[in-house]
Amino acid sequence: MDIYREAILDHYKHPRNFGHLKKPDIVMEEGNVTCGDRIVMEIKFKVGIEDIRFSGEGCAISQASASMLTEKVKGMNKVQVKKLSRKDIEDMLGTSLTPSRVKCATLPLEVLQKAMVSLKP
């Protein structure tokens, strides 16, 4: 199954930007109780995302998606992050998602977009 292709497993086993920031400007956490997934995003933000870390636990899809997303969004501003969609996540993962796994893959994006909303205008 291509959902467990090499790149996804690589990000799951060796997550990028995993851990914590010293003085993050935003911390946002979101869980998916049905699966027991949990993602925390810590962000340094000025005009755009300067630095980002994630932590949490979950299935390979949610963790790999979070790892890839942190790489993708560095340097992006608020509007650009808000524009990201499920389609972008699928392109990023390089696979289409079955209905039961959409939630896993889009949870990290949800957390990130919530973080952007929480920013003062």
């Binding site: 199954m1 699966c35 299935c59 899809i61 039961s100 796994r101």
Partner: peptide
Amino acid sequence: GIHAHDIAQLLDE
């Protein structure tokens, strides 16, 4: 080290 959802999905293969 492997989430139950990943197990179920790979077994479905």
